[in-house]
Each structure stands twice: as C-alpha cells, then as structure tokens.
Nucleic acid binder design. Structure first.
Lengths: 254, 254
DNA sequence: TAGTGGTCTAGACCACACA
DNA sequence: GTGTGGTCTAGACCACTAA
C-alpha cells in the first residue's frame, strides 16, 4: 500500500507545521494520496476502490473529507462513482474516449468511433517543435505513427502521432490498436488525463490530399493535440487533418 | 421576493409527496429557487447575495444544503464566491467573456479581446436554418449584424450575428458594443449561460475574402455558435469566419 | 438484507477581507 | 473585531444495487 503522510492531523485544532507552506486543505492532501495510487497503478483501471468508510478510517480522517476528495477526482473523470455499487477507477473504454477526447462528429449529430488504418510507423529523432511539446531530452528519440481514420466508407482524418519512444517500448513491434489510450493504460500504465487542442484551417498539400482522396488545396481542419498524463507530463503529440464536409468539431462552452 | 415551495420538508423524515415525482434532492430544489431569482433579475449581475446563513434560515434548510446549491451555481459560472467577501452574481465582463467564450487566441498564446467594426445591421425574415436554431415562430423576424473583428492591425474574423428581434428591441437604433453579451445582461436582462460551437474548415469566397483582405479561396475556420440563456432558450446564432494564419482555436479536453 | 454512495443536519473552527 | 465563505467532523437517514 502506498505510504502517506498528512501535513495536518485529522482535527484542525491539532494542526501543526502550516507556517511555511500555504494553507492546504485536508481533503486536497487526501486527494493527492489517491492520485499517487492511481499514478503508481496501485489502483488500476476498472478496479473498485475500498468504500468511503474504509478509506476514512485507513487514512484517519472523516468520511466527509474522503468524500470531498473522491468527488473531485470523479469530476475530473479519473474515478466513476455509482450509487449502491461503489467507486471505480475510470477506464479508457470507447464510450469515454468518444465523449471526452473525440470531438469530431458527423453532421447528423450521432457520435461514432472511427476506424483507423496505419500507413506508417517509424522511430526517429525529434524536431525542435516535438522536443519542446513533449519535453524531451536533447537527443531523445520518438516513435511516429501515421494513420487514416474514417467514420463511414470514405477517409476523414489523416493522423500523425508522435510519442516519446521511452514510454512506449515495443509498440512498433505489434499491431497498433484503434484505441491508443486504452493501450497506454493497460500495457504501459499511463493514464491520459486530459489534452489541449489547437485548431487551424489549412489547405491540404498534394500528398495529404492524396491520402484522403480529395483534391489538393481542399480546406481541412488541422488539430494539434498534446495529451497529458495524470502527473501532468506530456505523453503524445498528435496532428490530425480532418475533412469537414460532412462532419464538424464540437465544442461546448460553459 | 420570489415565492418558493419545496417538495420535501427540510428534514427527510418529514418528507411527503415523493411517490409521483422521482427523487429530487433538497439542494437541487434550493438551486432551482436561486436560478429563478437569477432569471427574473431579482439577483442582478454584480449583486452580492445574502450570506449562506441568511439564505438557509429564509428557505428553512441547513446552511450545508444552501452551500451545495451555491457551489453548483458557482461551478456553472453563474455565481462567483469569494472567501471573506461574499457570493456575487457573475458579470459578463471582458475577462469572463475572454476566458469562457472567446477561444481564438494569437499563436503567441496571450489571449486578447478583439476590436470590432460593424459593417452591416438589418432586420429581416429568418431562413429555415435560423428558425430552427433559434426556435423561432413561423414568421418571426430576426436582426442581423455583420462585423469585422481584429486582434492587432489586420482583420481576423468576419462575424455574422443573428438575433431574434423580439428579445433585443431597439438594438439596431444605437451603436453595437464590442461586448454584446454584456449588453444583453444590462439592457435586456438576458444572461448567456453557455454556448455550443461547431467548427469546420472552409475556403473563403470572393466577398468574404475581400472583407478580410486576403485572396479568395484562403482557408478559414468557420464557427457556428448557438448561445443559450439561463433557462436554456437560444439567444443568438453567430457564424464566424476566422483566419488562422496567426491565431488558433484553443480547446481543453478534460 | 447488507453494503454502497448520496443527502441532510448541526456545530465547531479556520482563512480571508475589510473597516 | 466582525462577518464572510471554506473546512472538518459526527451522526442519521435515504436511494440504489446485488446477493
């Protein structure tokens, strides 16, 4: 079991050692303990957590404090809570990926998970942009995957995925699954927690257009994604060129 | 003061009348009371709310229940809570708009609020797409505003805004402010609570390209936005054509 | 029926802002 | 100092799930 230490005792009136650090609520410290267990794989995807009461007495805080920590993790999609059943570590199943990470939907409005066909996979050196985005060392190699994704019959997305070779050893030796993030979790113990996407409109060059079966110069949506793991370190740089004649990128502003 | 009625008494063991309705937690009912006050303008933007204790005793629930309702509203950006000061109704000031509703940022990464220049404003009939998106009656008129927005010196966005004429009477008679949502709130009592955007990549036609000072056929990001008010009714249909040579659309996936 | 998360309450104390 | 929101606790009961 992961070792843990609280800056504060369970009861505020027994608090000590707060002079140097800024104030950090107890439930945040408890949350940090839980995050560490997720990072270290002590709690693996799909697993049921101990009940709130068990966690509370184990750590030595009240059930309400544990609850607040678990609620925040559930709000961040790292845990799933189900009344009457328990609290579970979130899985990168298709439904979750579709909802959380796949924003390109057909104009008919029904989200679907796209097929994919790998057209290239190779290791190599990183260019400066990749090195910066993935926080790589000076000569650290990367693995590049190129694939074409389609929602129906015709190609829709030309995808270039760049991964630090260090974190996905042996990936190039086997087939690349459609759902890459699920593989990260099961094979490499890496949880993709969130991602930042930058979108631009571009005109396809001849090579890109050829892969997608359209005329050169066709406008396409260029999506640069940086995916971050649980601990905030970059895991993937993915550039997608999307045809948007029959699909669109959906963004909810709240 | 808004009249309110709770389905359940304050204490669960005094509950009654739950047989027909599904279970609805007390704090959700309290939240609904608060939303009504926001919709009706009893609580206006910038106002300080009564303290948690005052609200609790007024409504007849515990402070914790009031807190949970207020927390949800704060999470939805409808209220702003500040420790030591109080709880306030959110305002559509530039900072909030910039953060919540303006996702186009310069490639240097520093968000700025764009200037805008109106190039056309006129009333008229709605086309079927507008009628459907804005949930308009058969012959209900709309107001169309067209403007050009720029972040630095050169034009960046060509914007077409369609509003139900009914909800913005007299808007065409005065100057159109840069920050439209702030005007909605102050002049018409309408709070834009969230929005849904659909993005596509398109090639600009000659007229569009002319306004933006680029060559026809230049790729641009087309953003269709539907803005929804507090009660979920559509308030605005906005189509933006954005040049993305020196800017990008930022989307955070969590 | 037992066990889980979800709701609600009551009370104490802490961090923060402001006069 | 006074008042506000924020944290933490303890205990009771409710809603849901599964055996």
């Amino acid at each position: 079991m992961t070792e843990h230490k609280l800056e504060f005792a369970a009861r505020p009136d027994q608090a000590a050692g707060a002079e140097i650090l800024g104030f950090r609520p107890l439930y945040r410290q408890v949350k940090a303990i839980f995050v560490r267990r997720l990072v270290e794989g002590v709690w693996a995807p799909g697993m049921a957590l101990p009940s709130e009461g068990q966690l509370a007495s184990e750590i030595g805080v009240s059930q309400g404090t544990v609850r607040k920590a678990l609620d925040e993790l559930a709000a961040e999609n790292l845990l799933v809570r189900r009344q009457g059943r328990g609290t579970f570590v979130a899985e990168h199943d298709e439904r979750r990926i579709l909802f959380q990470f796949f924003k390109l939907v057909p104009d008919d409005g029904i989200p679907r998970f796209p097929d994919s066909r790998v057209i290239g996979i190779a290791g190599g050196g990183a260019d400066p942009r990749e090195r910066q985005a993935l926080e790589l060392g000076e000569t650290e190699p990367v693995l590049r995957i190129r694939r074409i994704r389609s929602l129906g019959t015709s190609p829709l997305v030309l995808e270039t995925i760049v991964l630090p070779a260090r974190i996905v050893p042996g990936l190039e030796d086997g087939p690349v699954p459609n759902n890459l993030y699920s593989l990260f979790a099961t094979r490499y113990g890496i949880t993709v927690a969130h991602a930042r996407e930058r979108l631009k409109a571009v005109a396809l060059d001849a090579e890109q257009a050829g892969h997608l079966g359209v005329a050169p110069g066709t406008p396409a949506l260029a999506i640069d994604r940086i995916a971050l793991s649980l601990d905030g370190s970059p895991v993937e740089l993915r550039t997608s060129l999307c045809l948007t004649q029959e699909a669109h990128y959906l963004s909810d502003l709240r």
